[in-house]
Amino acid sequence: MKPFRFTATINGRPVDLPVNPHRRLLDVIRDDLGLTGTKEGCGEGECGACTVLLNGRPVNACLVLAPEAAGCEITTIEGVAPEGGLHPIQEAFLEAGAVQCGYCTPGMILAAKALLDKDLSPTDQAIKTAVSGNLCRCTGYIKIIEAVRLAAAKLSGEGDAV
């Protein structure tokens, strides 16, 4: 088993490090890069807590072998907010009361981002589909959906219209 040279762009920064190929993208993100905002809830692709964006698409980092993500643009929760501020989706999650225990929150925000990066006026059904791979056990789904709706309005410049 020889280490694999893992080169990728994470949150806009290039990374280049040797990784053992049996490690998951999740392990590299959390352990090697110290980006612990990405959570492990199940290790099976059921809960979505480890959601990151791979070339703009949401994936479960627990199901991706690290070398499979080599060469990709990876966005984790740490790469969402602008320097010193919050992304409108993060603002919306706070304002709508969509954050409870917080363990699903990073994954939810990234799932929402994957949607809103493509569609700024999503239907409720589209929002529900976008977060359907993410579990919230505090069962705050209503407020999470409200937050995504609010974020869409903020991002399309109608922040006060909701």
Partner: peptide, 23 residues
């Protein structure tokens, strides 16, 4: 009044350190 959670910002930024995040 509506109040923001005291730990809200850390949680939306992914900077809240859960036990497994500590080293």
């Amino acid at each position: 009044r509506n109040c923001r959670r005291v730990d809200g910002i850390a949680k939306v930024k992914g900077s809240a350190f859960f036990a497994a995040d500590r080293k």
